[in-house]
Structure formats: C-alpha cells, structure tokens
Write a protein that binds this DNA or RNA. Structure first.
Length: 280
DNA sequence: AGTGTATCCTGCAGGC
DNA sequence: TGCCTGCAGGATACAC
C-alpha cells in the first residue's frame, strides 16, 4: 500500500478539510471494499460528524460522533481525495469506490483501482479490539531498540517477513522494510531470532529514519499513490535498494539483488547485508 | 510455527 | 497493433 508514511501524509492533508464536517450522504460505487452490507454501512455513517482524522499503522482512522470509527485500509492503490476532481486528470479520482457527501457541499472520495482496500464503520470497542491486535507504532517514543530486539528473538521467520506482519509492528510495508534492512546491514532472509542486539538497535534506527524521511518527502509514489491533494510523494528517487536490482549499491557499488520469498520481492546488497553474520 | 500458494482486482511494461 | 506473461505500496485463507 500506501504504507505508514503515505497514510500519515494523507491524514495530515485531510484533517483540516474534514474535522468538523458531517457526512450527509454516501454513494457506494463498489460494495466490495466494504465488509458490511452497503445499506447497513450507509446507515451507520449517515449524519455523523467527523471529530478527528488520525492514523494507526497503515490505516486512516476517522473518529465519528456517536462513538463510531471510520477505518480505511488503502490496500495497494487506495486514495482518499477531498473531491472527485476533474474528469480526465490522471491525478484525480478515476476509480471511485465510495463517495461521501459532506455538509459543506464538498465530497470525500475513496478511490481504489484494484479494490484491495477496505472501508469499515466500527464501534469504539470494535476498533479498540482491532487496534490491540496490531503491533506497536514504530515512531512512538515507547518503541525502543531493546523492545524490538526482545520481540525479534521470539520468531524464527525471516526478518523481512517479520517486519511486514502488522501484528508484530504496525505500518511497515515492503518498500520501507527493505530500505530499513539495508540501512541496518541486515539480510532480509535472516531469521528474526538471529538478529543481534546491536543489529536490532541499528534496525530500530533504520526503521525510524526511513519512515521519518519518507513522511518529510510526502511518501513514495511508484505509480498510484497520491496525497490528499492529488500530489505525488517524492521519496521514490531516494530509495536505496527497493526496485533497484541490477544497479550499484550506493554504499559499496556491489550489484543489488532481488530475491522472492514469502510471495514478495526483497532487495538487498549482498556485501552490505551478508546472509550470515560476520564481516561488514 | 513457518512457508508456499492462491485469492481478491486492475493496469502497465516488456517480449514476440 | 495485439496477445501473452509477469509484476505491483496489501491482507487473508488454506494445505502441508
């Protein structure tokens, strides 16, 4: 998806336009992004005020009046745009799935080409339970290198797979997992349990650095991602390994490699990220 | 517990 | 131009 930095960028863009607005009508173009029957969903959000726009992991989370929560998972190609935009504009909404009419005459569009995203209206307790099943926020002050190391130690799965598991840590997707592992000098297929304390510290730093810098750049646009104003994120050109197989490593000039496991491509430098612990 | 595979869906790039 | 294959920021269910 859109990973944590993209969701955060969208939230920051949407908040001023949405807080204090009420949802007056809902047009469900593609019910398959909902997890409830369309009529029920529309009834649940009708006439509710948007009290706040926030983020949990990769999810955009809108707190609504009446103790409801509108939770949006952007999937691979989801966008949240304050209006449907101009027809023909490639950055406007081309695949609207759900359109919310607001009390100021504007609209909020959930646009999703592939429709892997989801839009749900939950009760407060339902959302709380959902959130509690997710891992810690990597940018929270309480998330430390020591805690990362403690959690990694309990899993034998490859560390890249571990980073992608939202129950272990929230908000990291394939781009930033690969970038953080490169910054830390850890091979993506290393068992999580083999990561040393020092490496966990480096990985903690790498994760936070890449997420913070990507937020500053407005996220990564490979193809579909746009922020709330329809603009691209600028972090793509700063990626060091993701999508760069065959190119020279920025640090040592070795050729960056791609390997597929867990059904996803991983990118790494064979010299900066040795498969076995040892030199570097 | 972990891994590979398939599924949801559309679009684009590259090979022929 | 067309047709085919493979690939894509995600998440889940399944069999082994």
């Amino acid at each position: 998806m859109p990973e944590l930095p993209e969701a955060e960028t969208i939230v920051r863009g949407l908040r001023p336009a949405l807080v204090g607005r009420a949802i007056t009508a809902t047009d469900i173009v593609h019910a398959d992004v909902l997890r409830a029957p369309a009529k029920r969903f529309a009834r649940l959000v009708a006439d509710r005020e948007i009290l706040d726009v926030g983020r949990r992991g990769k999810n955009v989370v809108m707190r609504l009046s009446g103790e409801r929560v509108l939770a949006v998972n952007l999937g691979m190609t989801g966008r949240l745009l304050p209006s449907s935009g101009t027809v023909g504009d490639p950055d406007a909404s081309n695949h609207p799935a759900v359109v919310f009419a607001l009390d100021d005459g504007e609209t909020l569009v959930f646009d999703d080409t592939r429709r892997f995203g989801t839009v749900e209206c939950l009760t407060g307790p339902e959302w709380l339970a959902r959130s509690e099943r997710m891992g810690p926020e990597p940018l929270a002050a309480s998330f430390t290198g020591a805690k990362l190391w403690e959690r990694l130690r309990t899993s034998r799965s490859p560390v890249r797979s571990w980073l992608l598991d939202q129950r272990k840590i929230a908000g990291i997707g394939n781009i930033y997992a690969n970038e953080a592992l490169f910054l830390a000098g850890v091979h993506p297929q290393r068992p999580a349990t083999s990561v040393t304390r020092a490496e966990a510290t480096a990985l903690h730093r790498g994760v936070r650095r890449v997420l913070r810098e990507a937020i500053e750049a407005g996220g990564t646009t490979l193809r579909d991602y746009r922020d709330a104003s329809g603009s691209e994120g600028l972090y793509a050109r700063r990626l060091l390994v993701y999508g760069r197989d065959g190119e020279a490593c920025s640090r040592c000039r070795s050729e960056i490699r791609r390997v597929v496991f867990g059904g996803r491509s991983a990118f790494y430098c064979p010299d900066c990220q040795p498969r076995r612990r040892g030199r570097r």
